Amino acid sequence: MKVIFLKDVKGMGKKGEIKNVADGYANNFLFKQGLAIEATPANLKALE
């Protein structure tokens, strides 16, 4: 799943980066902790 990092995550990515991560990792950790959001077309447009 493609995500946009909202904060730096050690060993994974930096704020503003777009990366592919495992679905479970994104849903169970990154999204719940507020560290990333899904890289949807609307979210990608908002990032620009």
Rank of each mutant, 00 (worst) to 15 (best):
Met1Trp: 04
Met1Lys: 09
Met1Glu: 03
Met1Asp: 01
Lys2Gln: 08
Lys2Met: 14
Lys2Gly: 02
Lys2Thr: 09
Lys2Leu: 13
Lys2Pro: 09
Lys2His: 08
Lys2Asn: 10
Val3Gln: 00
Val3Thr: 00
Val3Ala: 01
Val3Cys: 03
Val3Gly: 00
Val3Lys: 00
Val3Asp: 00
Ile4Phe: 09
Ile4Glu: 00
Ile4Val: 09
Ile4Cys: 06
Ile4Thr: 02
Ile4Asn: 00
Ile4Gly: 00
Ile4Met: 08
Ile4Ser: 01
Ile4Tyr: 08
Phe5Val: 01
Phe5Leu: 15
Phe5Gly: 01
Phe5Trp: 01
Phe5Tyr: 08
Phe5Ser: 00
Phe5Glu: 00
Phe5Asp: 00
Phe5Asn: 01
Phe5Thr: 00
Leu6Arg: 02
Leu6Cys: 07
Leu6Thr: 06
Leu6Lys: 01
Leu6Met: 04
Leu6His: 00
Leu6Val: 09
Leu6Pro: 01
Leu6Gly: 01
Lys7Gly: 04
Lys7Leu: 05
Lys7Ser: 10
Lys7Asp: 10
Lys7Trp: 11
Lys7Phe: 12
Lys7Tyr: 12
Asp8Ile: 04
Asp8Gly: 07
Asp8Thr: 10
Asp8Ala: 09
Asp8Met: 04
Asp8His: 06
Asp8Phe: 05
Asp8Trp: 06
Val9Gly: 02
Val9Pro: 00
Val9Trp: 06
Val9Gln: 02
Val9Ile: 09
Val9Glu: 01
Val9Thr: 02
Val9Ala: 04
Val9Met: 04
Lys10His: 14
Lys10Glu: 13
Lys10Asn: 09
Lys10Ile: 12
Lys10Ser: 10
Lys10Cys: 13
Lys10Thr: 15
Lys10Phe: 13
Gly11Glu: 07
Gly11Ala: 05
Gly11Pro: 03
Gly11Ile: 01
Gly11Asn: 03
Gly11His: 11
Gly11Gln: 07
Gly11Lys: 06
Gly11Trp: 05
Met12Tyr: 10
Met12Pro: 02
Met12Asp: 09
Met12Trp: 14
Met12Lys: 07
Met12Gly: 06
Met12Val: 15
Met12Phe: 14
Met12Leu: 14
Gly13Glu: 01
Gly13Asp: 01
Gly13Ser: 02
Gly13Tyr: 07
Gly13Thr: 01
Gly13Ala: 12
Gly13Cys: 06
Gly13Lys: 00
Gly13Ile: 02
Lys14Arg: 14
Lys14Met: 11
Lys14Trp: 11
Lys14Thr: 11
Lys14Tyr: 14
Lys14Gln: 09
Lys14His: 11
Lys14Phe: 12
Lys15Asn: 04
Lys15Asp: 03
Lys15Pro: 06
Lys15Met: 11
Lys15Phe: 06
Lys15Val: 09
Lys15His: 06
Lys15Trp: 03
Lys15Tyr: 07
Gly16Val: 00
Gly16Pro: 01
Gly16Arg: 04
Gly16Thr: 03
Gly16Lys: 03
Gly16Ser: 02
Gly16Met: 04
Gly16Asp: 07
Gly16Asn: 07
Glu17Pro: 01
Glu17Met: 08
Glu17Trp: 06
Glu17Arg: 02
Glu17Cys: 07
Glu17Tyr: 03
Glu17Thr: 10
Glu17Ile: 05
Glu17Asp: 10
Glu17Leu: 04
Glu17His: 03
Ile18Leu: 10
Ile18Asp: 01
Ile18Gln: 08
Ile18Gly: 01
Ile18Met: 08
Ile18Val: 11
Ile18Trp: 08
Lys19Trp: 09
Lys19Asp: 00
Lys19Ile: 13
Lys19Thr: 08
Lys19Ala: 11
Lys19His: 10
Lys19Glu: 04
Lys19Val: 09
Lys19Ser: 08
Lys19Arg: 11
Asn20Leu: 13
Asn20Gly: 07
Asn20Gln: 14
Asn20Trp: 12
Asn20Tyr: 14
Asn20Lys: 14
Asn20Cys: 15
Asn20Asp: 13
Val21Leu: 07
Val21Trp: 04
Val21Met: 07
Val21Arg: 00
Val21Asp: 01
Val21Lys: 01
Val21Phe: 08
Val21Gly: 00
Val21Ile: 13
Val21Asn: 00
Ala22Ser: 15
Ala22Trp: 08
Ala22Thr: 08
Ala22Glu: 14
Ala22Cys: 05
Ala22Leu: 11
Ala22Tyr: 11
Ala22Arg: 10
Asp23Ser: 13
Asp23Ala: 14
Asp23His: 11
Asp23Gly: 06
Asp23Asn: 14
Asp23Trp: 15
Asp23Thr: 15
Asp23Phe: 12
Asp23Leu: 15
Asp23Tyr: 15
Asp23Glu: 10
Gly24His: 13
Gly24Tyr: 08
Gly24Asn: 12
Gly24Met: 12
Gly24Leu: 15
Gly24Val: 08
Gly24Ser: 12
Gly24Gln: 12
Tyr25Asp: 08
Tyr25Ala: 08
Tyr25Gln: 08
Tyr25Cys: 00
Tyr25His: 10
Tyr25Ser: 08
Tyr25Gly: 06
Tyr25Trp: 12
Tyr25Arg: 05
Ala26Trp: 03
Ala26Gly: 06
Ala26Gln: 06
Ala26Leu: 09
Ala26Cys: 10
Ala26Glu: 07
Ala26Met: 09
Ala26Lys: 06
Asn27Cys: 14
Asn27Gly: 08
Asn27Arg: 14
Asn27Ser: 12
Asn27Gln: 14
Asn27Thr: 11
Asn27Met: 15
Asn27Asp: 10
Asn28Asp: 09
Asn28Leu: 10
Asn28His: 13
Asn28Ala: 12
Asn28Gln: 11
Asn28Tyr: 09
Phe29Ser: 05
Phe29Glu: 07
Phe29Leu: 10
Phe29Pro: 02
Phe29Thr: 06
Phe29Tyr: 13
Phe29Trp: 14
Phe29Asp: 13
Phe29Ile: 15
Leu30Met: 02
Leu30Ser: 00
Leu30Tyr: 02
Leu30Asn: 01
Leu30Lys: 00
Leu30Val: 02
Leu30Gln: 01
Leu30Arg: 01
Phe31Thr: 04
Phe31Gln: 03
Phe31Val: 08
Phe31Met: 04
Phe31Asp: 01
Phe31Trp: 02
Phe31Gly: 02
Lys32Trp: 07
Lys32Val: 11
Lys32Ser: 09
Lys32Tyr: 10
Lys32Gln: 10
Lys32Asp: 07
Lys32Ile: 14
Lys32His: 07
Lys32Gly: 10
Lys32Phe: 05
Lys32Met: 08
Lys32Cys: 13
Gln33Ile: 11
Gln33Gly: 12
Gln33Met: 15
Gln33Leu: 14
Gln33Trp: 15
Gln33Pro: 03
Gln33His: 15
Gln33Thr: 06
Gln33Arg: 14
Gly34Met: 13
Gly34Thr: 03
Gly34Arg: 06
Gly34Gln: 06
Gly34Val: 02
Gly34Glu: 10
Gly34Pro: 01
Gly34Ala: 07
Gly34Phe: 08
Gly34Cys: 12
Gly34His: 12
Leu35Ile: 10
Leu35Gln: 05
Leu35Asp: 03
Leu35Cys: 05
Leu35Phe: 05
Leu35His: 02
Leu35Arg: 03
Leu35Lys: 04
Leu35Val: 04
Ala36Arg: 00
Ala36Thr: 02
Ala36Cys: 05
Ala36Tyr: 02
Ala36Asn: 00
Ala36Val: 10
Ala36Lys: 00
Ala36Pro: 00
Ala36Ser: 01
Ala36Ile: 05
Ile37Thr: 04
Ile37Tyr: 04
Ile37Asp: 02
Ile37Asn: 03
Ile37Ala: 03
Ile37Cys: 08
Ile37His: 02
Ile37Val: 12
Glu38Thr: 06
Glu38Tyr: 08
Glu38Cys: 06
Glu38Gln: 11
Glu38Ala: 14
Glu38Gly: 05
Glu38Ser: 05
Glu38Leu: 08
Ala39Tyr: 08
Ala39Asp: 02
Ala39Asn: 02
Ala39Val: 07
Ala39Thr: 02
Ala39Arg: 00
Ala39Pro: 02
Ala39Gly: 05
Ala39Lys: 01
Thr40Asp: 05
Thr40Met: 03
Thr40Pro: 03
Thr40Cys: 03
Thr40Ala: 04
Thr40Leu: 06
Thr40Phe: 02
Thr40Tyr: 05
Thr40Ile: 05
Pro41Met: 11
Pro41His: 11
Pro41Arg: 07
Pro41Ala: 11
Pro41Tyr: 11
Pro41Gly: 11
Pro41Leu: 08
Ala42Pro: 06
Ala42Asn: 10
Ala42Arg: 05
Ala42Gln: 12
Ala42Lys: 10
Ala42Met: 05
Ala42Val: 11
Ala42Cys: 15
Ala42Trp: 03
Ala42Leu: 09
Asn43Gln: 05
Asn43Asp: 04
Asn43Ile: 09
Asn43Pro: 03
Asn43Leu: 11
Asn43Cys: 07
Asn43Gly: 02
Asn43Arg: 04
Leu44Ile: 15
Leu44Thr: 05
Leu44Met: 14
Leu44Val: 07
Leu44His: 03
Leu44Asp: 03
Leu44Arg: 03
Leu44Phe: 04
Lys45Glu: 13
Lys45Cys: 11
Lys45Trp: 09
Lys45Thr: 05
Lys45Leu: 15
Lys45Arg: 12
Lys45Val: 11
Lys45Met: 11
Lys45Pro: 15
Lys45Asn: 11
Lys45Phe: 10
Lys45Ala: 15
Ala46Trp: 14
Ala46Thr: 10
Ala46Ser: 14
Ala46Ile: 15
Ala46Asn: 14
Ala46Gly: 12
Ala46Tyr: 13
Ala46Glu: 15
Leu47Lys: 05
Leu47Arg: 03
Leu47Met: 13
Leu47Gln: 09
Glu48Asp: 13
Glu48Pro: 10
Glu48His: 15
Glu48Asn: 13
